[in-house]
Design a protein around this nucleic acid. Structure first.
Lengths: 246, 246
DNA sequence: TGTCGGAATAATGTGCACATTTGAAATCGA
DNA sequence: TCGATTTCAAATGTGCACATTATTCCGACA
């Protein structure tokens, strides 16, 4: 039929899944960088204006983030950055304890040379980060350690589940200024756990993981995130959805 | 401003979240009833026509179901009923084993009279269902038993997680004709597990749960769902999104 | 002066109109 | 007759317009 287009521009690409990912990643990155504090409202028009995308894209990304537990949606009100209660943090670490003690037990029973190699490599990287006092890298590695343990079990469902739990429990860490991240006990605990796994000492490994998570939960529960909301424009300053400055 | 509406009808209620839930529940119910076989395509116009709702509502419900793992979306192709592989089933039951053995251990260590009462009540209901040969009720109760154990731990995160795992692992059961559901070992296993919990025998309870899940996984993996797709119209015959015949 | 109430404004929610893409039927050629 | 190419219809994806809802602001009244 070749009908002439009514409005002017609208150069529309095909199933542009790349832009969707970019918007989603940008918002998530802003949260990981600690720029979005609990209580902040993510208004759709403001986000669309700042990220230079249409409102529908923002809406879709927000819905996805809500489904994944990063944000909270109130009907007819908007989407907000959630404030995890100490009870929620305790519950999340409780579930993590159940899963991760089982994981280290599993790894003690059945791991081979390649798994041992990856564990030792990760501990080495953490040690380097500590030596260089690279807080940002250490922050990322500390979380990835737990994901690595899950992945070494060779269970994709388990990895996905633990990854979701980690994002929720590290949200607090992110909401604190991540450049101030300092966890001297973390890398040392990780090294001990790996040592126990390599020695196939199941009881010791499980106990170390239990104590490690208990310590993390206690330290995290003691800290309360600030509650002064910040504007959207300044929160996303320097971040862009269309071009990755990476 | 009171601008006259362009088109005729469109009597739109307020933030109608009830319709959204109805559409979502209807599709989910059709899956639980085993009417949607793996490989079936859930086309949006067909669903909208059958359920008597707009396409956007269907679209939103489908997106949610995709995100929760009930369905699979292929870009520009459509939404399909997934076919779980035996490997996925094995992995899901592996994760469930980790969580649920920890749950029964937890319950052995710390449960009071109200928890004991609810456990005994559930076992009683299952016994009644077995006596009456009520397959549908037994099918529901068998799943709820595991959710009940998680809820008795008083951990909301744990309950939500296990609920998601259950929906995925029971999808196979649903895809078999549920009226043919017959699990003579299930209720008996459940009664034994409850007995061990009430006796606070941690090792025995964990072992019983482990064997129970192992048996379920083995039985479930042995069975392969049929792969003859069925039309949308007949799959949703009798089901409605606007009025619940319940 | 403080509070209650209504109007203006901004934001959310949703139906609708196309553009793009896919799948398959139809047509053509060997 | 079979295979490859073209054509066409249906489905998916997305921007847009507008109704509905919440919030804010401002003035009247006690």
């Amino acid at each position: 039929m070749a009908r002439p287009r009514a409005k002017g521009l609208s150069r529309r690409r095909k199933g542009d899944v790349a832009t969707d990912r970019a918007v989603y990643d940008t918002i998530r990155r802003a949260m990981l960088m600690g720029r979005l504090l609990p209580g902040t409202k993510l208004a759709e028009p403001a986000l669309a204006r700042v990220l230079k995308v249409s409102r529908e894209r923002v809406r879709k990304a927000l819905h996805r983030l809500v489904h994944e537990g990063w944000l909270e949606a109130v009907p007819n009100r908007g989407t907000f950055v959630p404030a995890l209660t100490v009870e929620e943090v305790r519950e999340i670490y409780d579930v993590r304890t159940m899963l991760e003690t089982a994981i280290v037990s599993r790894l003690c029973a059945g791991h081979g040379p390649p798994e041992a190699q990856r564990l030792k490599a990760h501990v080495g990287e953490e040690r380097i980060a500590v030596r260089n006092d690279d807080r940002g890298r250490l922050f990322g590695l500390s979380g990835e350690f737990h994901v690595l343990l899950a992945e070494l079990c060779g269970n994709e469902q388990l990895s996905k589940l633990l990854r979701g739990l980690l994002t929720r429990s590290t949200m607090h860490f992110s909401q604190a200024a991540p450049e101030r991240f300092h966890n001297c006990a973390g890398p040392h605990d990780h090294a001990d756990i790996v040592k126990a796994i390599l020695a196939r000492d199941t009881k010791k490994a499980a106990k170390l993981m239990l104590d490690h998570l208990l310590g993390l939960a206690e330290w995290q529960s003691a800290w309360r995130p600030p509650s002064t909301p910040v504007g959207i424009e300044e929160a996303f300053r320097g971040l862009s959805a269309v071009k990755r400055p990476a």
